[in-house]
Write a protein that binds this DNA or RNA. Structure first.
Lengths: 204, 204
DNA sequence: GCCAAACGATACAGATCGGTATACTTCTTC
DNA sequence: GAAGAAGTATACCGATCTGTATCGTTTGGC
């Protein structure tokens, strides 16, 4: 293993274990044992366990958001359908055998103080996710893109939370149906042109 | 303090600390220090820390569900309005200064294994909450009470999750608006009679 | 008022926690 | 190929974890 890969490997291992057991329950000794790395090495790359957690969350944040963007944008060009496609992306993540809930919500649950750096990192991730929804809602020319984004966001969080407890993927489909129903009743700034200005027809 | 009160006092203290710091981060030593009780005493009432957690969650489960029932049932007699009133109850809990997220979701986040007794206790609480929504949806004569209950439940979880991160109460109001919008489009088994068969008119 | 149960206080066990120190080896790079 | 950075392995530190043992004191029920 090349030297530059060790850091990535440590982050991968840590993320996997944090997801499986949680942050407090995952000890440094377990991480280095699973990564097959000496403790000295870990502490050469990360000053403290908290630093490791923060680096892991940063990595995961970028991965998640990039993956959602890529999934959604190759799925359809219509902004409304893109808003709905975010739930399909959610479904793929929930169907993963390793799914045990949103790692950022878990991080916030284990670090409840709002000034805790881990809490703030989770908050930042959620803000960025919300910003993406707002971007899509704006592109869809909804009259109140901020409110639409907040509603989509709330449905996402609800679907993931229910899936975390029930360990089934149905809540993500349910949330999508609810989103479609709600969006259908929403005002748009300009009525969508019939017959294609870049995307297919708006959601029914 | 009378003997029978010690157990209750320990549960209160433990719940408060679990809510403030989380389950793993709250040590036995802190609990007994805050409760002003000897370690021997705690272990006379609870065999292990896990037993204490389970007892605390059981207590909280009953408290929460009873409080919601009481709040909702004194608020209105109309079943649809009762479904919507559950969000008002949610708002009161979220507005509490001590609110740091749902204790059951946090418990499930820290005990992710589905066979873990703590996870199962959280799952059981969520099932009972869902059953109450179903009871209300049935009373409201919705054509698909199970689906309605699941939708209300998903909105609840979403509102609490967003409130946990943002630490504002607005998501509960937002979820209520979404619920009202969704319920208005739902079929009922028998159209509500105009002019009172026990409840006021159905939601607009 | 006696007795047993429950309490408080403290010390301790054994494990594990995050993190450091040391000594040796293996790369990478000039 | 020398030098220095980064790796491994291991021992260790002090703190903290859950849980137990000991022992003297308080208390409630008969």
């Amino acid at each position: 293993m090349r030297r530059s890969e060790i850091r990535d490997h440590l982050l991968d291992t840590a993320l996997r274990l944090f997801n499986q057991y949680g942050y407090h329950a995952t000890g440094i000794d377990l991480i280095i044992a699973e990564a097959g790395v000496a403790k000295t090495t870990l502490y050469r790359h990360f000053e403290t366990k908290e630093d490791l957690i923060l680096a892991a969350l940063e990595r995961r944040d970028e991965e998640d958001r990039n993956a959602m963007r890529a999934f959604v944008e190759q799925r359809t060009g219509d902004p409304v359908e893109r808003l709905l496609a975010t739930f399909d992306f959610l479904e793929t993540t929930v169907r993963d055998k390793q799914f045990r809930g949103c790692m950022f919500m878990s991080a916030a649950a284990e670090h409840k103080d709002t000034v805790d750096p881990v809490f703030r990192a989770s908050l930042m991730h959620k803000r960025l996710a919300l910003a993406y929804f707002e971007e899509l809602a704006h592109a869809a020319r909804f009259a109140e893109p901020k409110r639409i984004a907040a509603e989509i966001n709330l449905l996402h969080e609800g679907a993931v939370a229910v899936a975390q407890i029930t360990r089934i993927a149905e809540p993500t489909r349910e949330a999508k149906r609810m989103a479609r129903q709600l969006l259908a009743a929403e005002e748009r700034l300009t009525p969508p042109t019939r017959g294609g200005d870049g995307g297919e027809r708006t959601a029914r």
